[in-house]
Amino acid sequence: MDTKPQSTLPVLVEPPRGAEPHAPLGRGYFLGETRRQQPLPMRESLAKIKNWFRANSLWVMAYGTGCGGIELRPLTTARFDFERFGMAMRPTARQSNVLIISGYLAVKSLKRVIRAYEQMPSPKWVVGLGSCTINGGMYWDSYNTINRLDLYLPVDIYIAGCMPRPEALLAGFGELMAMIKRGEANGWNHYLENFDWYKENQKKVINDWNMPDYNW
């Protein structure tokens, strides 16, 4: 009898094409040794100061997932200029804190968004932009889009409208900053605490699931 504790992780990851894996399937390429489940309540010393820093330096991941991406250009450029609030676009997930889901999400995009979200270091926040992220908007009956974003990712703040004006986005980010300073924007905690629930939902819509399970 093998007494070694069996991994609780389901074997999910296919090896890359043309490769004969030496490591156990699903562990060698993508997974770390242990899955770090961190129940992360915001109870730490200096929390207020840290949150002030976090709120005033939001780095947005440069990923326009839907139509809303078109209003992110004016938001970053001359007329609306969100950089004056300390926000900036970062091209890599490892260095960004805010993920803007700009509009509807096709199922194929959802997969990439989840991967990008899980690679971001915490604390991280998700901003749902436009009506489509709330209830599907005008694509409520489309066969290829998801209707409710918060079934799959923990949304910290929604900015409604189709599409919301840059001013609305700025107001939304202002609200997000205030929430962070108050210590209320804890979406990533929620994601970790209900990790299995989120994964179950994600797997329901994504049929060809070949994603690594990690959460840090």
């Binding site: 194929k108 995009s109 694509y139 009956d141 066969y143 889009t145």
Partner: peptide, 14 residues
């Protein structure tokens, strides 16, 4: 492609 597919042509038939 397919990251943005919404099926407009199908939606319009409804």
């Amino acid at each position: 492609v397919g990251y943005l597919h919404r099926g407009f042509e199908k939606l319009m038939e409804r």
